[in-house]
Simulated assay, not measured.
Amino acid sequence: MGFGARAAGVAPALGAPPPDLVPAVAALLVGAVWAGALAVATVGAARAGATT
């Protein structure tokens, strides 16, 4: 959510929003990849814990 808030300029405490569309979209993609990786890690850890 922080990547999206910064890219949209709604959270000035996170830094200035990117000046152009391309960096804003890149920030959103990085955030989506990060969130996806966190979800995969969380599910993997939950499954590993359930089998022991």
Rank of each mutant, 00 (worst) to 15 (best):
G31P: 14
V22I: 10
P12Q: 04
A16N: 13
P23V: 02
W34C: 13
G31L: 03
A26I: 08
V33M: 05
A26N: 09
P17T: 07
A7Y: 02
V43Y: 05
V25N: 12
G9F: 01
V22W: 11
V10H: 08
R47V: 13
V40I: 07
L14W: 06
G31F: 08
G49I: 04
A48D: 10
G9T: 03
G31Y: 02
G44K: 10
D20T: 08
R6T: 09
W34D: 13
M1R: 11
G2L: 04
G44T: 08
V22G: 10
G9M: 03
L28P: 09
T52I: 08
A8K: 14
R47E: 15
T42A: 12
R47A: 13
V43D: 00
A41M: 09
A48F: 13
P23Q: 03
T42Y: 07
L21P: 03
G36C: 10
P23H: 10
G9R: 00
T52Q: 08
A46Q: 09
G15C: 07
A45G: 10
P18T: 07
L38N: 06
M1I: 05
P23K: 02
A11R: 04
L14G: 03
A8P: 06
A50H: 06
V40N: 01
A39D: 12
A5N: 01
L38G: 05
G9H: 04
P17A: 10
R47H: 10
T51M: 14
G2Q: 07
A41K: 11
R47C: 06
T51E: 14
V22K: 14
P19T: 12
W34E: 12
A46L: 13
A48I: 02
A48G: 05
A39Q: 05
A16F: 02
V10Q: 00
W34P: 03
V40A: 05
A27Q: 12
T51I: 09
A27F: 13
L38Y: 01
T51C: 05
A26S: 07
A48R: 08
V33C: 11
A41P: 01
V43C: 00
M1E: 03
V40H: 00
T42R: 11
F3Q: 00
A41E: 02
G9S: 09
P23T: 06
A50R: 08
G4D: 00
T51N: 09
L29D: 14
L29Y: 12
V30Q: 12
A32K: 15
G4R: 06
P23S: 06
G49Q: 06
L21H: 11
A32V: 15
L29A: 13
A35M: 08
G44N: 04
D20S: 10
T42Q: 09
P12T: 02
A24Y: 12
A5E: 06
A5C: 01
A37I: 05
D20Q: 07
G49T: 11
V25L: 15
G49E: 14
R47G: 05
A32F: 14
G36A: 13
V43S: 04
A11K: 00
A45R: 11
R6Q: 13
G36I: 04
A7M: 05
A7V: 09
G15T: 03
A8R: 15
P17W: 02
G36M: 07
L14Q: 02
V25Q: 15
R6I: 03
A39R: 08
A11Y: 03
T51H: 12
V40F: 04
T51K: 10
T42L: 04
W34L: 13
G15H: 01
G49D: 15
V25K: 14
V30S: 10
A11L: 04
A7C: 10
T42N: 05
P19I: 05
